[in-house]
Design a protein around this nucleic acid. Structure first.
Length: 496
RNA sequence: GGGCCGUUAGCUCAGCUGGUAGAGCAGCAGACUCUUAAUCUGCGGGUCGCAGGUUCGAUCCCUGCACGGCUCACCA
């Protein structure tokens, strides 16, 4: 007792004793072994007529063990679900049957036997041979309530997955949704690419980056906050249609809809513009909803969301007029806009001092305050101020506005898309403007990427581009309240 | 970062106005050949998140800390 020992519970000690006993008997449940299994649980249940009285081989985890004396029932869980195993001395032999009875809930076993239906109508496997494939040394959480403690569910997701079948369903759906995106884009000629996570410049979005260091290069590097500028280089290179699904990293607050690392798809299409991106956005989301939920109509937190095209289209100015009762169309300059800001209580919403704010800043603040949370059904908000859209083409006839939209669902931003700015001279001016913003204290202003500008000098065709927050879409399609419910291992503070 | 709430057996949770703790599941022993939250009998299992303080005495009151949840702020 000199060294600090990990305190084992009574139940853990019991299981370790069982393990030692098994090993002493030459039945080490951790010894190398493979198990040929022929079927999964749900397949057997769905194909009972064909499989009745047929031999099958299954494997999984013991979730329930009902010993009624000379016979027992086990609920075996595999990746598809659960199936009941019936065992008795006749099927296994008296000695084996007695041995199996010492197994525990949580143990991972293989079962060979024939398919039958119990008198109560439960499709089951009548065991002829059983093998303990892995011993569980820790007891499972409570079989009825499962694992409830949110902290443990996130920290020990493996237990959450074992105990809560809807969690497994959510993550299966997650994969279906991402695959739906891939299938759709691959079918219309997109090329999936990979761009750097590590870079000396973190640009393409407004966010604080994570900082790391390369030992080999003796260099400070950032983890990417967006893939935009590299994907556009691919367009310059002639790939015409590219997308990347991957993690972005933003060193910011953690809450119900933000995780420091999150999954984004960005896609770029040459010879297209933001109108094409709207259609693509509708089609991608509708197709994902159809594949994951069987319908474009999805229930989210008690509200029915309709993802089928067409989504409502509304300019930012019209949205502010509709939801904020403020008319920006007649505002001629920044000064008039600042007056409006004071009149409508927007000053506190602004990220900068009022005198530093342009008309665009104030319009955006009014939108965020009055309109954003009202946009429940999928809605495109079009035409964003140029000041907050440094990578976007200006509107023909109104250089203060850009060809940009964001898609909102349930009051949350889901997608962001532009007619991509491809004029290298204007792009340089916009980066310079961002540098000024940074001097004014905005540490999320876009970093200058000179090589990106120089790629535009080589020539980027007119291009439409879009980013969609995959985690957020997955939240909507799985009725998940928190982003942590759609990320397998969300960022957590370590326990001290 | 602010506010509110939580942390008690492996798990899910009780625990009154302060007198060092209970249930169900799980575990152990036993009974039971169609159970499925199986049932029945009996028995074990706790540094009440951590550290201080008040008190004769703290799971309970106070302070601080840790972790988590919600929320506001922040955050395209």
């Amino acid at each position: 007792m000199e060294e600090a020992e990990i305190a084992l519970s009574e139940q853990q000690l019991v299981r370790r004793e069982k393990l030692l006993k098994l090993q002493a008997e030459g039945r080490d449940p951790f010894a190398a072994v493979r198990w040929n299994h022929s079927h999964h649980s749900s397949f057997i249940k769905q194909n009972f007529e064909a499989l009745e009285n047929q031999d099958v081989s299954i494997a999984g985890r013991i979730m329930s063990f009902r010993d009624i004396g000379k016979a027992s029932f086990i609920d075996l869980q595999d990746k598809e679900g659960r199936i009941q195993v019936y065992l008795n001395a006749e099927g296994l032999g008296a000695e084996e049957y007695a041995h199996v009875k010492s197994w525990d809930m949580g143990d991972i076993i293989g079962v060979e036997g024939y398919v039958f239906k119990t008198r109560r109508g439960e499709i089951s496997v009548h065991a002829k041979r059983m093998e303990l494939l892995t011993k569980a040394l820790e007891p499972l959480p409570e079989k009825y309530h499962g694992l409830r403690d949110p902290e443990q569910r996130y920290r020990r997701r493996y237990l959450d997955l074992v105990m809560n079948s809807q969690v497994m369903e959510t993550f299966k759906k997650r994969t279906i949704i991402i695959k739906a995106f891939r299938d759709y884009l691959d079918n219309v000629g997109y090329l999936e690419v990979e761009t750097p996570v590590l870079s000396t410049i973190a640009s393409g979005a407004a966010a604080r980056p994570f900082v790391t260091k390369s030992n080999a290069l003796n260099l400070q590097l950032y983890l990417r906050i967006a893939t935009e500028l590299y994907l556009k280089r691919c367009i310059v290179g002639g790939m015409e249609r590219v997308y990347e699904i991957g993690k972005n990293f933003r060193n910011e607050g953690i809450d119900i809809r933000h995780n420091p690392e999150f999954t984004m798809i960005e896609l770029y299409q040459a010879y297209a513009d933001y109108n094409d991106m709207m259609e693509l956005c509708e089609n991608l989301c509708a197709s994902a909803a159809l594949k994951a939920c069987g319908s474009t109509k999805v229930n989210y937190q008690g509200t029915e969301l309709e993802f089928a095209a067409p989504w409502r289209r509304l300019s930012m100015m019209d949205a502010v007029r509709e939801y904020g009762k403020i008319d920006f169309s007649s505002v001629k300059n920044d000064e008039e806009a600042r007056e409006l800001a004071k009149k409508h209580g927007l000053v506190e919403e602004l990220k900068k001092k009022l005198e530093d704010c342009s008309k665009g800043d104030i319009l955006n603040a009014a939108f965020e305050k009055f309109a954003e949370k009202e946009l429940i059904q999928p809605t495109f908000i079009l035409d964003y101020p140029a000041d907050i859209s440094p990578l976007t083409k200006q509107k023909p006839g109104d250089p203060s506005m850009t060809e940009r939209f964001e898609a909102f669902v349930y009051g949350r931003e889901l997608a962001n898309a532009y007619s991509e700015l491809n004029d290298p001279i204007v792009q340089m001016d916009r980066f310079n403007q961002q540098a000024k913003e940074r001097e004014l204290g905005d540490d999320e202003a876009y970093m200058l990427d000179e090589d990106f500008v120089s790629s535009l000098e080589v020539g980027m065709p007119p291009t439409g581009g879009m980013g969609i927050g995959m985690d957020r879409l997955i939240m909507f399609l799985t009725d998940s309240y928190s982003i942590r419910d759609v990320i397998l291992f969300p960022t957590m503070k370590p326990v001290q």
